[in-house]
Amino acid sequence: MDCHQCHQNHGSCGSKRSLRWLPFSENLTRPPIEPGGPQIALVGMPNVGKSVLFHALTDTYVTVSNYPGTTVEVTRGAVTLGDRAVSVIDTPGMYSLLPISEEERVARDLLISESFGAIVHVLDAKNLGRMLSLTAQLLEAELPVIVAVNMMDEAQRWGLTIDREALVAKLGVPVVLMAAARNRGVDQLREALADRLASTSVPAVAAVG
């Protein structure tokens, strides 16, 4: 578990601990991650289906490592966006940008110390109002946020509807409605990510190590 160099390698040290003998077939045609290319982070409160979304996005290429100096685990993988593979990080659950627990501190540190091409804020559709306050904090920090309103299937069962257009207008960032556990909206999220990364004019930060 002491794969600390992963911190800088943007997931490229997966060779050692990747799911090589996973019974499912690994996608061999997956393009390699560009060194120093953009990174994507998934953030959100606990219980919003963040890790389910992570696995839906990343297929089988997953590495788990400890955040330097802690025993908090950070999961990294790669998402295929068109013809490029982009490194994606699943951060520990957090309630606000101001950390209380060790896990929240790790999530916050990751967010503000590494450079991300896009930050996906995953939230639970049923509790939109409660969770948008974290979106507000991410926007206050001027981070490149994409809002993923997850668990739409449950919200629909509860008789709730969400006006995506209005949400886009209010927040001024891309919004995707989805149900990751049912694999709904995952492709739309991929598109939104590809658009966001394509529009980012900031050149990729040179890889460290």
């Binding site: 109002g129 409660r130 948008l132 509860w158 969400i162």
Partner: peptide, 21 residues
């Protein structure tokens, strides 16, 4: 203040046509 902001957005974007389902 953040909560009020968030709830104001929820009120204009989230509808509950069939409550108590």
């Amino acid at each position: 203040a953040r909560q009020e902001f968030a709830q104001a957005i929820e009120q204009t974007t989230l509808a509950e046509p069939n409550p108590n389902q």
